[in-house]
Nucleic acid binder design. Structure first.
Lengths: 149, 149
DNA sequence: TCCTAAATAGGAACTATTCCACAATAAGAC
DNA sequence: GTCTTATTGTGGAATAGTTCCTATTTAGGA
């Protein structure tokens, strides 16, 4: 069983179904953008997706890719990779710790998890080397935002 | 024992020591920037650090903060919070999975870790709610970069 | 105290991203 | 097939985060 890419055709069907269910028009552009995202599981940048899609749809505009990706994100079809906003953030705390990130206000809170720290990575990661840090990121609502709900 | 902020004065001494050991000049600016980072454990942005430092050092330039932070990062004094580069990246893979990030080429590879997925978060995170995703990020060298070493 | 390489200030430049307005297009309901 | 309306292309302009450039300043060794 291929884990990453079980069946592009099937996923594309799913995509159409979801679009219709959400009242999103299934346009050529959206289809191609989604297909590009399915095909390139290496977490491309928006620019990268644009380059890919342009191979099939010469007239696509970068703005459309941005807009479409934002739409997909809103509807939970894709997710942005562990990034909070566009600003780089820093950490003086070099000790082993992990992060809770508030989905609403972007606040980051540290937490400790020794049970996790003791765990060994699965075998499937052994082709990588020089692993210094393993780090858990959890998304949720911080106590302040929770109250405001 | 206060875990985050054991003793600012002591940390500042450590800071000077490390700078000297590494041949870094202990400038006013660096000192203030490091102090600001120690004081604000909420993972500020560079802009945030700049604002803080400016309270004490009116003439500091934003660029200095950027350069200094980069220097600190190079020398392992601080660490950037789970972010790869400035481009937003996406993920169609909504299933539970985790990321290996190459410290050299920024490649992201997915891996699976069911043992981790089954774990329950520690009690210290229970004041947060609506936690949908917990996600491991591992930094290391991908097999391609490993060969080039 | 003097000297020199390292570091800084300030502003310009660059990059990723978003926004805009409006005409042209095309999806999907009928 | 027709109609309505969401979506797209265009191209430029705005924004935000970050980096670059150069003249000037300064830390720290001699």
């Amino acid at each position: 069983m291929k884990s990453n890419n079980p069946n592009v055709a099937e996923m594309m069907n799913g995509f159409e179904r979801i679009c219709k269910a959400k009242g999103l028009r299934v346009t050529h552009q959206r289809t191609e953008i989604f297909r590009a995202l399915l095909k390139h599981t290496d977490h491309p940048t928006t620019e990268g997706v644009f380059q890919q899609v342009r191979k099939h749809l010469k007239t696509i505009s970068l703005d459309t890719v941005y807009r479409t990706i934002a739409t997909f994100e809103e509807h939970g079809l894709i997710r942005r990779v562990h990034q909070i906003d566009n600003a780089t953030r820093f950490d003086v705390n070099i000790s082993n710790h992990h992060h809770l990130v508030c989905s609403r206000c972007n606040k980051i809170e540290d937490f400790y998890w020794p049970d996790f720290d003791r765990m060994k990575l699965p075998k499937s990661t052994s082709h990588w080397s020089g692993i210094e840090v393993k780090h858990v990121v959890v998304n949720g609502l911080c106590s302040t935002c929770k109250k405001k709900t």
